[in-house]
Amino acid sequence: MKKFLVIITILLLGFIGLSKYIFAQDGFDIKVINETNKEISGIYLTYDHIKSDIIVPSIEQGEVYKLNVNPTETFVENAMKLQYKDKEEKLHTEYVIGYFEKGYSGKAEITIKSVDENGKLDIEIVQNASAY
């Protein structure tokens, strides 16, 4: 009976480990939500050593844009940022994933709450990154 329980436990742990490997997420799933009453454009995602910034297309009011960012560049440590310029051409930066290394994965939800008269965005970011 003890042998049977040990075998079942090993098989169960193996199945759990294999399923985590098979269903592992690649990169970062990013969701950008426009809760404003205006179309949002001119925002992009970037990180150090990126070959070219990731341009987020214009997002209509109430719309959601989803993308997956899977960094392939060579780096040790990094941070993913959302950047845009306001009407006065001042660059604004918000951290989407505060820290990641090669092989990390996760999710981030960027909610654009409002836009002021100068084009500055009120942004809320919820992130979840892991080394798995």
Rank of each mutant, 00 (worst) to 15 (best):
I7K: 11
K31T: 14
E117K: 08
N34R: 07
Y44C: 02
F4Y: 11
A131R: 09
D48A: 02
Y95F: 07
E73V: 01
V69W: 00
E77C: 00
K85E: 15
P57W: 07
K113Q: 11
K102E: 01
I16Y: 14
S105Y: 02
N128P: 09
V56G: 06
K113E: 12
D53G: 03
E63D: 13
Q83I: 03
K3N: 13
K90C: 06
T9R: 10
I8G: 10
V76I: 12
L82H: 03
K66H: 13
I110A: 04
I55F: 10
Y47D: 00
S52R: 10
I97R: 01
Y65S: 02
P57I: 04
N118K: 15
M80I: 02
Y47V: 02
F23E: 11
D53I: 06
V64I: 12
E63R: 11
V64T: 14
D86C: 05
I112K: 09
E73T: 04
A79K: 01
V64N: 12
D26V: 04
I33V: 12
G27W: 04
N128C: 06
L82M: 15
N37G: 10
V6M: 12
L18D: 09
V76K: 04
K51Y: 09
N34Q: 05
L12K: 03
I10Q: 15
V32S: 04
F28D: 00
Y21N: 12
E124R: 10
L121F: 14
E73W: 02
V6E: 15
K38L: 11
Y132I: 01
I125P: 01
K107P: 06
F23C: 09
H49G: 00
E89L: 08
K87W: 10
K90R: 13
G119P: 06
L82T: 01
I97L: 06
I112R: 10
S19V: 11
V96H: 05
